[in-house]
């Protein structure tokens, strides 16, 4: 089963400590376990663009669709046996400590 991890910032989380950021180690582990599908960082919300079509007209706006204190800073798609494995993998991600991670099961079309 595929899960998407939304790597989010959290203003209430402990301050970021670069020395404790072991993201390479984490990435290497999911690679070695064969569960990594795809993942990356995302540029900050300042670089976001929102598109809507209303009455046939394309409306382009600067910024994210919702102003929140928390924003998605990255994502990973992982293939896990079950939610417990996804939780275990997410809990090892450095941003679980310095931010928060939302786990969402992927819902494939046709299922």
């Amino acid at each position: 089963m595929d899960y998407m991890l939304f790597i989010c910032t959290d203003p209430t989380a402990p301050e970021y400590v670069p020395a404790e950021d072991n993201i390479e180690e984490w990435a290497a582990e999911i690679e070695a376990r064969g569960i990594a599908r795809h993942g990356d960082r995302l540029r900050p919300v300042e670089d976001a663009t929102t598109v809507t079509v209303r009455g046939g007209e394309v409306i382009v706006a600067d910024g994210p669709f919702a102003e929140t204190k928390e924003w998605v800073a990255g994502y990973d798609i992982i293939a896990c046996t079950d939610l417990d494995e996804a939780i275990e993998v997410a809990s090892k991600h450095p941003m679980a400590k310095f931010g928060k991670i939302e786990i969402r099961p992927v819902w494939p079309f046709g299922s």
Binding site: M1, Y3, C80, T81, D82, L83, D84, A86, P105, W107
Partner: peptide, 14 residues
Amino acid sequence: RDAGIPYRVPPPEL
């Protein structure tokens, strides 16, 4: 069902 919560007795570490 949809989030894949396992139907099992958790492993020792959990």
